[in-house]
């Protein structure tokens, strides 16, 4: 049902995404597509896949932005998927109960067997994380790879979301953000993890680790080397330096 579970419900599984190491390679997005098109929400169809306006269902998309002014601007890659919000209005607005948030781990899912495809949930998602399957007439979204993380047919190490296991830059971390001592929670604490659009009050479970400050000479390192010979640039002085340097081979 679409009443949200009590918020203190212990386990809050989610992702922590490190914007400081994300190189924007799209591996997470494609691997997500690959796993999920045969997974819990199979398929993730692609309309007109080889045509002029190909458009498919993806649970994860990677954006590229620049932020800051000319001088100290920087490029930031931003992978975006469902943040499994605690206060998930996408669930509350669902008239059928198809959208729901699991009490046991906080994962937000869509029950495709009863979804009527009214799309209201996608309107209610500030993050544009829900994607409509026109072909099946139902809403689909990131499942946090629910068919992997508990899957007894997979090796222990593989029981993480596809996007996490495939990220070459190790920029994606999965865990229980409800447990302050979990690795992910510690990461968030250390790196000051943020939740996008906090002001909307959706209380996302996922967190983004902001890019670290750049180090371009302002990190107390050396600024220049001291020439050992009169800096008039004359080669002779420079060479003189090594005349009596006899080193054994």
């Amino acid at each position: 049902m679409t009443m949200l579970p009590p918020e203190n419900a212990g386990k809050k599984l989610g992702l922590v995404i490190d914007l400081d190491t994300c190189v924007g390679c799209h591996a997470c997005a494609v691997n997500c597509k690959e796993w999920n098109t045969g997974g819990h929400s199979a398929p993730l169809p692609d309309d007109n896949p080889f045509g002029a306006d190909a458009s498919g269902v993806w649970f994860n998309r990677v954006h590229t932005y620049e932020c800051g002014e000319d001088g100290n601007s920087r490029t930031v890659h931003f992978p975006r998927s469902c943040l499994h919000c605690e206060n998930a209005a996408c669930v509350a607005v669902c008239p059928t109960g198809a959208s729901y948030k699991r009490e046991e781990d906080g994962i937000v899912l869509v029950n495709e067997d009863i979804c009527i495809g009214c799309k209201l949930c996608s309107w209610a998602c500030p993050y544009g994380a829900r994607e409509y399957d026109y072909d099946a007439g139902v809403m689909k979204k990131c499942t946090l790879c629910i068919d992997r993380i508990y899957n007894e047919n997979l090796d222990e190490e593989d029981r993480v979301p596809a996007c996490v296991s495939t990220c070459p830059a190790n920029a994606r971390h999965f865990g229980d953000l409800g447990d302050p001592n979990s690795d992910v929670s510690r990461l968030v604490a250390e790196r000051g993890g943020v939740a996008p659009m906090e002001e909307l009050g959706y209380k996302p479970v996922n967190r983004y680790l902001p890019p670290r400050p750049r180090r371009a000479g302002d990190d107390g390192g050396p600024q220049a080397l001291q020439p050992v010979s009169p800096p008039d640039g004359s080669a002779a002085d420079g060479l003189f330096r090594w005349i009596d340097r006899i080193l054994s081979r």
């Binding site: 914007l19 932005y65 932020c67 996008p196």
Partner: peptide, 12 residues
Amino acid sequence: LGLEGAGPVRQI
């Protein structure tokens, strides 16, 4: 983007 303070954001 959760990046307040990092300056104006533009999609590239």
